[in-house]
């Protein structure tokens, strides 16, 4: 896969190994989950059961799974918004809430619900991500304003940095949200369903953007999605989650059998009576020779490069 960026502003604005990168300062895994189980109040079945998983520093891990498979729960646990009933979670060696309070975690929501009339520009919103912890009597220091400029260029949002944050298109808003997360120079960037509502071209651009962010900032990336393409295109490793962790593997280890097992309940629930099976790469003209294709069939097909 070609991960080179085509955005000239990125190349002009940011060099490798600069002040955007924050030293991890520890050999601890970026994220460590050991035998984590979480059950929501009033529910008998656990949303997550006995999940053990390590995310290494600077790794890009995708968490793939069907709707209701526990992805959002895992994300809330990593962010420290929920406490597991059993097991242990560490983010760079700290409890998630501590890591969050220390500013180690940058979060990009699935879709930020920002009022159209909200009276902040994109630049001001991104600056807020870098400065909300500052003393109220302090102005935003120059170095932080420079970082804001750089992340805006890095994500390709510099051209519309002056526009009101509530008036952006879906793709523009997503870039602004990534910039806001990066402006705080997190060690871990968590993205929640980043490609929902984005077309195929937008997903391709998103994968390029994620690769650029990873290359330029050296940040650990955790992507949570049920979208195969979002996961495969932008991650080094994929963890398949459907209440339990089914496997973790490199993207090319995602066999059709693994996906069929992972999504069988979800797909059957939505479409009814469909089946998931594999074709050789030659069957699909849009995929490269190293890929196989997963096709979900029933009237319409959805293709993901694996």
């Amino acid at each position: 896969m070609n991960r080179a960026t085509t955005n000239p502003s990125i190349e002009a604005g940011v060099g490798a190994g600069n002040e955007l990168t924050r030293d991890n300062g520890t050999d601890a895994p970026a994220v460590h989950l050991h035998a984590v189980t979480y059950t929501y109040a009033g529910s008998e079945a656990p949303a997550l059961e006995d999940v053990t998983l390590d995310v290494h520093p600077r790794e890009r891990l995708g968490i793939l799974g069907p709707n209701g498979g526990g992805k959002s729960t895992l994300l809330k646990l990593v962010l420290g918004l929920l406490e597991p009933q059993r097991g242990e979670i560490r983010v760079f060696g700290l409890a998630p809430a501590q890591a969050r309070a220390a500013g180690y975690i940058g979060y990009v929501p699935q879709r930020a619900r920002i009022e159209q009339a909200f009276p902040l520009s994109v630049r001001e919103a991104v600056t807020l991500g870098a400065s909300w912890r500052l003393s109220p009597l302090r102005r935003v220091p120059r170095d932080r304003r420079l970082i804001v400029d750089r992340v805006l260029r890095l994500v390709g949002a510099a051209d519309y940095a002056h526009r009101p944050i509530g008036e952006l298109s879906g793709g523009q808003a997503q870039r602004a949200m990534i910039a806001r997360a990066l402006a705080a120079r997190p060690r871990l960037l968590v993205l929640d369903e980043p490609t929902v509502g984005i077309d195929a071209a937008g997903q391709h651009k998103f994968a390029e953007l994620l690769a650029t962010v990873h290359r330029e900032m050296g940040v650990t990336i955790l992507v949570v999605s049920h979208d195969l393409r979002a996961i495969v295109a932008g991650c080094d490793r994929v963890a398949c989650l459907s209440r339990r962790l089914h496997s973790h593997t490199a993207p090319n280890g995602l066999t059709p059998q693994v996906l069929a097992e992972l999504f069988s309940h979800d797909v059957a629930g939505v479409l009814g009576g469909v089946h998931v099976h594999a074709h050789a790469a030659d069957d699909c003209g849009s995929c490269g020779p190293a890929h196989s294709v997963v096709v979900v069939e029933k009237g319409r097909s959805e293709r993901g490069r694996v």
């Binding site: 969050r100 309070a101 975690i105 940058g106 929501p109 930020a112 920002i114 909300w132 109220p136």
Partner: peptide
């Protein structure tokens, strides 16, 4: 005194909590 966290919360409450 609280303008920065208040603005962050007002803009995007769901993300604000994830940011700490």
């Amino acid at each position: 005194l609280v303008r920065r966290p208040l603005l962050f919360w007002a803009m995007d409450e769901g993300s604000a909590q994830a940011f700490g």
